[in-house]
Amino acid sequence: MSSRIEILNDGGFRSDGRRQYELREMTFDMAEQAGADGSASVAHGLTQVRVSVFGPREAKMRSQTIHDRANINVEVGIAPFSTGDRRKRSKGDKRILEFASTIKSTFEPVIQTALYPRSQIDIFVHVLQQDGGVLQACINATTLALANAGVPLLDFVCAVTGGVHAAAPMLDLTTLEENDLPHVTVAVMPRTGRVTLVSMETRLHVDRFEEILRLAGQAGGVIHKEMRAVVRERTKGLVDAMGAGVRTSDFAEDAMVADS
């Protein structure tokens, strides 16, 4: 144990200098990506994810249409350079497919798909850098991208990872911590406090589970505040830009016709 990095030292600090309940720096960027209906990139510390949303639009494959609601299609690409050990994953990789279906099932109850029968909503997730909490970053980025695309959502979905180190709960784990600790990713809808996803790939003691779940719910609220501030800022920016140049003229046609 002595040769390894301490997860939580005696002073109560983690290996990157954070406290137990401290989240990493978050950046949310909703700048438009040309061609996509909505896009967002999100960074939690060194983890960086970009999501583009297309649709609701006509389903490319007729077999995928659902007659009374929209079909959600999630595709995940993990950049080979995103991890420490460079590894190329094929698109049909089982882990990636499972990851995509996790995101899909997280958003299925949140997107109001019934408003768009026979359409398709495409969500393309690109993981650019991985340092723990990839799923949480993907879910937060997808929420912002969907909001950016004007897709009706019941609420934001805010995800965060929680772990336990020797009975001490922690939030927003890095890769280093994720490798050593039992952890769980929780996605909440902050208005109602409903949980749309609990994903756990390690074994966690049942006595610790409730505490972490509750803590992650609270952390979701903190992240929600940030995300909402970003969405508001962008909405305000667009409204201001549009308000600046509204002018029409009834004489337009007379003025414009230039006969040759």
Binding site: Y21, L46, L215
Partner: peptide
């Protein structure tokens, strides 16, 4: 208990 986040690495005192 307070859930916080700061720039990475944190500079000076959490609050």
């Amino acid at each position: 208990m307070q859930i916080t986040f700061t720039s990475f690495p944190s500079q000076s005192g959490l609050r």
